[in-house]
Simulated scan of single mutants.
Amino acid sequence: MSPVFDNIDLFVDGFLTSLRIILYALAGALPLGVLIAACRVSPIPPLRAFGTFWVTTFRNTPLTVVLVFCAFGLPELGINRSFFAFGVLGLVLYTSAFVCEAVRSGINSVPAGQAEAARSIGLNFTQGLRFVVLPQALRTVVPPLGSVLIAMMKNSAVVGAFGVGGDLWSTGQRLTSALGYETLPIFVGGVAVGYLVITLTSGALLQVLERKVAIAR
């Protein structure tokens, strides 16, 4: 474990960078996924078709392919950003499809009478979805949505391996390839532990949220 403690400052910086990737991706994937879910259940056929296309495309495309397109395809279209921005964008697009399906399952679990009641008091589809259906649906999707978000946190390692410098994964790579440290202590004692801290803490917070939501219901 000495290689880890000898480079603890690098691992702390890598941990914080990985946390930044996760938080930015979370802030983008959640609202985008909810928006796509609204398209999926919309009464307007073009919106439903768009939502179906989005989910089918990103759920069936490997994350690495999405990242390659963001990093090398978008610059061909005149969009130039850092690898960090492209990595976060790819993770947002990929994760939003899974967030969408989790939220859509919650929307479908809300009794149809709730939407009919919303229409009976004069609310349109958007208002009924926002004020009546979604608040109930989001309570039921905390466990599946939590699984999606945990998977996103682990997928952030793919983003790091793709070329985003300074995160946990790239820190481990640099220490083993450039500085010659042994692979097992670095990746088990430093990289794996860092991701475990993130995922286990997030899982505990999600369990607390699930219990509070269950009480509210």
Rank of each mutant, 00 (worst) to 15 (best):
R81K: 14
V55L: 01
L30K: 04
G172D: 10
T201M: 13
S18N: 10
V213A: 13
G172F: 01
G122N: 04
A37L: 10
L19D: 00
F187E: 00
L23S: 09
R104N: 09
V142P: 03
V41E: 09
R81G: 10
G113L: 06
A178G: 05
R174N: 14
F69T: 01
V188D: 05
N124R: 05
G106M: 00
T201Q: 11
A204P: 00
A117Q: 05
T64S: 10
L175R: 02
A102Y: 01
L47D: 03
V197P: 06
T17A: 15
E101H: 09
V197H: 08
K212L: 13
G163R: 04
I186W: 05
E101I: 03
L123A: 06
V103Q: 04
T183G: 07
A161M: 10
T95E: 13
D9N: 08
T95A: 14
L30T: 10
S109T: 02
G163I: 02
I150C: 02
P144E: 03
C39M: 15
T56F: 15
W169Y: 12
P31F: 01
L32V: 12
G73T: 01
L179Y: 14
D167L: 03
I150F: 03
V191K: 03
P111W: 13
A71V: 11
S82D: 08
S177Q: 15
V191H: 02
F131N: 09
